[in-house]
Design a protein around this nucleic acid. Structure first.
Length: 498
RNA sequence: CGGGGCGUAGCGCAGCCUGGUAGCGCACACGGUUCGGGACCGUGGGGUCGGAGGUUCAAAUCCUCUCGCCCCGACCA
């Protein structure tokens, strides 16, 4: 890819994001209606892939899926002080249980809300409270622990401003909720699930992430501490892609979730919660895709290979389609998902653009010349569209299967290299301000911080950059705060965030 | 909640300033020629111009009110 192409991609990224992705009929992914997301079939197929990979890992680590009510009594939410404070302003509230049709004098029919509820409900913004309520009923003994549950559900947070995939009022997610007998055990769980998220992000979505701890001002409302994975998007902004919280005994106390230990003492359970959402689709798009549409790593691509037959006459058509069909069956036998695009009335070029836009990793052309030569032409979505590679039809399925792993790896490497090129160590506040956003390109800044919320706030007010996380891995050299010069234990990641 | 902008065919828009037969591109339907990177020609279907009221001989256009949506800020997975 030329440097011009990269510059143009960065410059046009915001516009592309709106034009291509937001207009779902081009990307066939999703759109926002009244702040809520409509996920179209192609977008949903990608989500299903991510979902399956997460779910498999949750089960492999001993978790079971469950489902809890959508409506949460107001009183539940009030039980944990900092939790309610964090979510109160974004709760949709159900106050009535009925409607009545009213016909006015001019003959028009309107509906009036009827039957006010004695106690209103909130539509879950997250389920800690209602799950805490059930945990209290289900847990009596240390033998009931650990209790490891996960829920796939929609939640609602009445956001003032929404953004497709990244922040919609209603979103689809997964929330894990666990209860443990000791803090050591719950902390292990927090770390384990953060690891699961990082694994899926990097090895499935090819989206490199930084694992870290949130500062107190950024942590989950009600948590003792929050951990996260942070990814860099192509415009240099940070995206929080998953969180894992140590809830301590906060919810245990609030919902009276007690158990009797082996030695007979009564104690509150130690809880965790962790979540990741359809925001991951947004992260995926903003990590890899370009002006021509989606670029999908094979592990999340609903379709791996699109075969495009080239023909003029009916005779040619039947020959190339037959050859394509043989290839399709062989690829499917190798575990690849394939479409043979034999649509009439669309020229080959239009088919290329179509599958390119949908992010299909590999397209294959088979024409009359190829059939004679026993070969086909391969085009990779992650490479220059003009690049063509010939491939012998015999044994093609295995080659394509291997090509998928190659693409998967290469996308991750490319994203890693991009992030590295946009990550800067800074030691003075001047450097900080200069390096944050040079010429509209965002950067991740590794800087020392004195650990105070005041400094964090001041930097945010000055620069819009927030502390994305205190990284768990990497350099742990102490130093001096970039703003105040006070001692700092390690560098933290500053960036502008979505 | 503050500041901007937009509602006209399925989608994207022009027309509005200066009132006078509602248009363009894409998509759709039919016919033909095409087909190795978004085909072309011809024909055709599709609209109570977001809604209500007002001014006028006449309103998509001017005025008032209203509803909805989008963008920027504060808030956020």
């Amino acid at each position: 890819m030329s440097s011009d192409a990269i510059t143009s991609r960065e410059k046009d990224f915001a516009k592309w994001y709106q034009d291509v992705i937001r207009q779902g009929d081009l990307a066939e992914a999703a759109e926002v209606v009244r702040g809520c997301m409509v996920i179209k079939p192609h977008g949903y197929a990608i989500w299903e892939k991510i979902q399956a990979e997460l779910d498999r890992r949750f089960k492999a680590t001993g978790h079971k899926n469950a489902y809890f009510p959508l409506l949460i009594p107001l009183s539940f939410l009030a039980k944990e002080a900092s939790h309610v404070e964090g979510f109160a302003m974004e709760c949709a509230v159900v106050t009535h249980s009925g409607l009545k049709a009213v016909t006015s004098a001019d003959g028009k029919t309107a509906l009036e809300v009827k039957n006010p509820l004695e106690e209103p409900y909130v539509i879950r913004p997250t389920s800690e409270t209602i799950i805490g309520h059930y945990f209290a009923k289900w847990i009596q003994s240390h033998r009931d622990l650990p209790l490891l549950l996960n829920q796939w559900a929609n939640v609602m947070r009445w956001e003032m401003r929404t953004r497709l995939f990244l922040r919609t009022s209603e979103f689809l997610w997964q929330e894990g909720h666990t209860a443990h007998a000791t803090h050591e055990e719950s902390l292990e769980e927090v770390e384990r699930m953060l690891g699961v998220y990082a694994d899926v992000a990097e090895n499935v979505m090819a989206m490199p992430v930084i694992r870290g701890k949130k500062t107190d001002s950024e942590k989950f409302a009600g948590a003792v501490s929050s951990y996260c994975i942070e990814a860099m998007m192509q415009d240099g902004k940070a995206l929080q892609a998953g969180t894992s919280h140590d809830l301590g005994q906060n919810f245990g106390r609030a919902f009276d979730v007690k158990f009797q230990s082996k030695s007979g003492e009564i104690d509150y359970v130690w809880q965790t919660s962790w979540g990741s959402s359809t925001r991951l689709i947004g992260g995926l798009i903003m990590t890899h895709s370009d002006d021509a549409g989606l670029v999908l790593p094979p592990a999340v691509a609903p379709i791996h290979v699109a075969i495009i037959p080239i023909y003029k006459t009916d005779e040619e058509r039947s020959k190339v389609v037959e050859a394509g069909d043989v290839l399709r069956r062989e690829c499917e036998g190798a575990g690849l998902s394939v479409v043979l695009d034999d649509r009439d009335g669309l020229r080959p070029g239009a088919k290329h653009f179509d599958w390119e836009q949908k992010g299909v990793p590999v397209r294959i052309e088979i024409g009359p010349r190829d059939v004679l030569a026993g070969s086909c032409v391969v085009k990779r979505r992650d490479r220059d569209p003009k690049e063509k590679t010939p491939l012998a039809l015999a044994g093609a399925a295995i080659v394509l299967k291997n090509l998928m792993s190659e693409i998967q790896t290469s996308l991750l490497e490319r994203a890693r290299a991009f992030r590295a090129s946009r990550t800067v160590q800074v030691d003075t506040y001047d450097q900080f301000k200069q390096a944050l956003d040079p010429g509209g390109k965002g950067n991740f800044l590794l800087a020392h911080w004195d650990g105070t919320p005041e400094t964090e706030k001041k930097i945010k007010a000055d620069t819009k950059a927030t502390i994305r996380c205190i990284p768990l891995e990497g350099d742990k050299e102490p130093g001096r705060c970039v703003l105040t010069g006070q001692p700092s234990a390690q560098r933290v990641v500053f960036a502008q965030a979505y």
